[in-house]
Every structure is written in structure tokens, then in C-alpha cells.
Design a protein around this nucleic acid. Structure first.
Lengths: 338, 338
DNA sequence: TTGTACGCGTTATCAA
DNA sequence: TTGATAACGCGTACAA
């Protein structure tokens, strides 16, 4: 393991100069700087995180987290992951501040970002898909803030990386799972929050794509519930009344409890097979009732933890993420392996 | 964040004394020691890993790893996880040495352990279920070596912790999955390495336990292939010849490729549904052929990584694991979400 | 029994 | 443009 001290000796300069050269702090002769960089590369120098961490303790870097999570139980586990990571890194002086909000109004999120942006070194957020949000992200990145998009992404922003699930593959997997469980013939109702939401739209597309390969799958209709449990209940109920021929319902987003309650009003032998996403407590309840047969799980805890890991690695150890996107697998879970 | 220095000042002693009191190095007045410990507890003192890591760099702690992995592709990903973790911690002076072996003879493993035990501070191994191995583990623990059992456990040993999968639940989940995919009626062949292997036996028990709840599931026979691909092929072939009524085969352990090849000799419409464990390349191939319909995945990469994480936390940061057992979930995967 | 001083690798400040 | 020095928290050798 090679250290700055060794490089300094070999180059015949002081550690301070090596530091300036390697970390681009300026005020160093271009020639010696080049020489030092070459030597460092040749020796395979890697900064020691422990040393960095120790020295960084004075900084007390702050990670601000903004989540549109209120009323969405999926984020409960995400937040647990965030808190576990925060606890783990507290010792390095890292401060993590979580701000939650309700709904998806861009101006609300914008206001929240602006209220904290002066005080954070990194920002983790589930961005709302809006021009102004993208601009704000870019502004922060340009100002030196490390930005992670969590659980959903917006395209064209300068965010350092994205942590979340693969929505398109989620749709594909949901369709494949349905085929595996119900056979090649089904009359299907698809339920989601809104086609405006990028992730929901992608899942829908994935589902349709995979469906081309199944002989007798037919989508009767796509129901949108605007992420509202009551709407999910009412609209599913109405859908089932209009379409008693339905044999499967695929809940591509939240609202599972409402959907389940609507399905439960049918006599058992007439109930369609329901599959869902995530395993929030109310969904688990529906699985115990036998109403929801399977669910697709996307490691919410790990998503939260990883987002903080990446910000930590950058702030304390100066390490940029290796990848632009950290995508969780879609895991299939039955009641038995929840 | 409270440091030893602060505690020293508050107690009116030197930092050296605090160190001795808190780390039980002796040579310190019992009364002052007690006082210091109380103060530390009261302030919620937690040693700073960065400081520890830096100071520990002279030690160059060694983790020895012994795996009966040769010829078992499952461990390829486990080893990738181990190597990734080793790379991550190299900077802290951690050395990781992997030793692989073939087969499950206790004396072989014993000899391997003995050949390295003088040189390691921690040992990670997948122990063979044998009295002598248990004794050896206990001997090492008593000698101050940190021991992690990986992928399978032996009962009654003093190992610090176990990292691996939940075999019993794996059997339960396999049965539930089969029911979800094939319906409530099936004539089943169960294939595994050997009932002598604890994990295989537990999966078998889990499968039988869950099967009680399914009306028309019937196990025709249990085939043992001694973890040999050719035996798996031959015996499955013979089984299918004797029992053309078979509608499902559940591969509870390795040998999936041999099983698949035997199944492929039947005309497509007569093939039983096959489900398996793990997703090694040959199993993936069988899934692409449509022969294996689903597999149960147990996070091999994370198993390997976590085992090293725990040893690192102990050796460099002096942290004992929070849990005795770190159990991975059994995840269901189709070709689509592999 | 206790205190002092140094080193681990890095960053930051100040003086040259 | 540079170098020297102190500091971060901990472990430890040595002196008192």
C-alpha cells in the first residue's frame, strides 16, 4: 500500500505538495504536479479512506434527503435503510437529515429543495418529473452538491447517479409470472397510479412487450387510481362489475389494499388472480387472505442504504460512484418467502 | 460524537488510562477504571473505526477462507463477493487468503485448517458436518480466532456466526411455488445430493411440511445423486423411464444440468415441470431451453461479501456481530428476472 | 498505577 | 509556489 508520504519522498517534495497536486487544489508548479501525478499512477496510489475520514471529521458533511413518501408505505423500508446507514456513518461525522412530503406537486418539492440547499453537501431525492426539478438538480450539481436520484429517475439531469428498480423489467416479470401461474390464457385488468408517472408507464410497456409472446392474454382495461387507496377500491369494484369475465388483476403500483378489498367482495370461486408489487404490510395482509397470490419485491431497504453509501463514499472518501445506475432486481415472492 | 480524549478530560486522567480501562488491558486502578467505564457508557462512547483502522494498519490482520467449492459453481459468485470485499478492505491492511478444496471428507478439511490456523486471525469456512470439525472450530475460537460458518452450519460449535440461506424455508418455498405454477395436483420426483447433507435434508423436510397443505401432491421418489452431474443425469433418466406419470421434478440441490439433460430426452409435451435452486450458468442455460421453469436464488454474492464484512468489523474495528445468524431470503426467479 | 509521546494517512493553516 | 506543523482518534512503547 502506497501513501502520500512515500510519493513525497520519491518525488523529493513535501506531503503538502503531493496533496495539492493530487487533489487539484492549485498553487502548485505545473511540472512538479505532473511528475507527482505520474508517480502516483505508476505506484497505483489509492487514498486511504480511514485517513480521509479522520481528517474529514471537522467538516461534518450533511446529506439532505427529500422524499415524497408520506402516505406511501413502500418508503418505510427505504427510510429504515437510510437510517441504518446514517447510524453506521455517524462516527465519521456524517449528518443525515430526512425531509418527507406528501403528493407530487413540483412546486412543493422545489420549495423544499430550496429551503435546504444552502445547508447540504449532498442531496438524495425521489425527483418529480418536471422541468423545474431537472433544472434545480443541475444547479445543485454545478454548485458542487452530490445528487442521487432515488427510486425514480428523471432523464436529462446531471445527477451523479440513480438508485432504484428496473420498472420495464418489472412489467416483463409480472407478465411472465402471471403466465407461469395462470397459464397461457387470461383476461386481465391492469391497475396503476397514473400513466403520467414514468415508472408506472414503463411497467405498463414492459408488461405489454412480454405479453406479445403469450397466446391468449388479453388486457381488458387499464385502471388509474392516482395513488389513492379509495379510488383504487372504487374503480376496481366498478371494473369488476362491468367485466365479470376478468381472470387476473395485475397491480403495477400502489393501491393494492383497495384493489384487494374490491376483489374480496366477489365470491371466492369468482375472484381473479391478483399479483402486485412491493410487500407493504397491507399487501402482506392481502396475501394472508389468499387474495394477492404473489408480489414483486425490489429491495427497498437496500435502495435507501445504498443511496447513503454512495453519498458517504463521495463526501468522506472522495470516491465517485462506479456506475451511473444502481438497479435492484425484481424478486418474486409468495407468502412463503416474504 | 464523544472521543477518548474527552472522556479523559472529564475524568481528570490521561488518554492512556482511558484506553486501558475501556479495553481491559489491565494495569489500572479498579476504581478509576470503573469510573471511566461509567462515564463512557453515560456519554454513549463508540470507538471511531477510522481511528482504529489507522492505528491497526501495522497489524495486517489475515482472514483465512476454506471452501469445499471445487466443482460447485454456486460458489463462484460467493467467491466474487469475497474478493470484492477483500479489495474494499485492502486499504485497511486486511489480507484475505482463499483456499478451495474438492469433496466433503472431514479429514481433508481438517488438514487444510491445520495447515493455516497458525497464520490467521479469522477463519471463514463452509464446515463439513463432523465431530472433529466442530472440535477444531471450538479450538480456534478458544485461541482467539474469529470464525464464520458460511453457507452451511454445524450445530453445537462455538463459531461466532453463520452466514447462509434458510434451507428449511427453501423447501417450503419450492413446494409453494410448484403449487402456484402447476396447480394442486402433481406427481413429483425430488432430486438432491444426499440426505446426509444437513441442508439437503432440511430442504426435504420443508418441502414435505408444506406439501401437507396441498390436496393432490404425491412424491413418487427421492433421488440422490451425491452431487455428481453424471449420476444426476443417469438416475433421473432411469426414474423417468420407470415413472412416465411424473409431472414435476424439484431439484433441491445441484445436479440441475444432468437432470435437465435427462428431461430433454422426453418429447416436449411429456416433460415434467422442473424447478431448481441457484442460478449457475448451466441452470440458466436450462432455463433458456425452457426445461427449468423457475429457480430459487439465495444471494451467493452477498453471502461471500457479508462473511468478510463481519470478519473485518471484528478484526479492524473490534465489533462483534449483532446477530448469531445472517440468513438470506429465498428469492424466486424466472428467466425474465434472473 | 499512570502519563507522555509517537505513528498511522489525510487535510488545512500558516509562514516562507 | 512550497514546506513545516498541527489536528483528527486510536493503539502502544516507554518513561515516570
Amino acid at each position: 500500500m502506497v501513501t502520500m508520504k512515500q510519493i513525497a519522498e520519491l518525488c523529493g517534495v513535501s506531503r503538502g505538495t503531493v496533496d495539492r497536486a493530487l487533489n487539484g487544489r492549485g498553487r502548485v508548479n505545473a511540472e512538479t504536479a505532473e511528475n507527482i501525478r505520474k508517480m502516483a499512477k505508476q505506484l497505483g496510489y489509492e487514498p486511504n479512506p480511514a485517513g480521509k475520514a479522520l481528517a474529514a471529521r471537522k467538516h461534518r458533511p450533511v446529506i439532505g434527503i427529500i422524499l415524497s413518501s408520506e402516505g406511501n408505505a413502500f418508503f418505510d423500508r427505504v427510510i429504515e435503510g437510510i437510517k441504518a446507514a446514517a447510524e453506521e456513518y455517524k462516527i465519521y461525522g456524517l449528518q443525515v437529515e430526512i425531509h418527507t412530503m406528501k403528493g407530487y406537486l413540483p412546486e412543493d418539492q422545489l420549495a423544499l429543495i430550496e429551503s435546504i440547499q444552502a445547508d447540504v453537501n449532498a442531496l438524495i431525492l425521489n425527483p418529480i418529473n418536471d422541468k423545474r426539478i431537472v433544472q434545480k438538480i443541475d444547479e445543485l450539481v454545478d454548485a458542487g452538491v452530490f445528487v442521487v436520484n432515488l427510486n425514480n429517475d428523471v432523464d436529462g439531469s446531471k445527477r451523479h447517479c440513480y438508485v432504484g428498480s428496473d420498472y420495464y423489467n418489472g412489467g416483463i416479470t409480472a407478465c411472465a409470472l402471471l403466465e407461469a401461474m395462470i397459464g397461457t390464457s387470461a383476461k386481465i385488468g391492469l391497475v396503476l397510479g397514473s400513466r403520467q408517472v414514468l415508472g408506472h408507464k414503463q411497467r405498463l410497456e414492459g408488461f405489454y412487450h412480454r405479453m406479445k409472446r403469450v397466446k391468449d392474454f388479453e388486457v381488458i382495461d387499464v385502471i388509474e387510481h392516482e395513488d389513492d387507496e379509495i379510488f383504487a377500491y372504487e374503480r376496481t369494484k366498478e371494473f369488476l362489475r362491468l367485466h365479470p369475465e376478468t381472470t387476473a388483476i395485475c397491480a403495477l403500483a400502489a393501491g393494492v389494499y383497495g384493489i384487494g378489498r374490491a376483489v374480496m367482495q366477489l365470491p371466492e370461486e369468482k375472484r381473479p388472480m391478483v399479483i402486485a408489487f412491493d410487500s407493504v404490510p397491507t399487501t402482506v395482509e392481502m396475501m394472508k387472505f389468499g387474495v394477492v397470490r404473489a408480489t414483486l419485491y425490489q429491495h427497498p431497504y437496500r435502495q435507501g442504504h445504498l443511496a447513503v453509501d454512495l453519498a458517504f463514499a463521495y463526501l468522506v472518501n472522495g470516491r465517485l460512484p462506479e456506475k451511473q445506475e444502481y438497479i435492484m432486481k425484481n424478486e418474486i415472492r409468495l407468502l412463503e418467502n416474504l
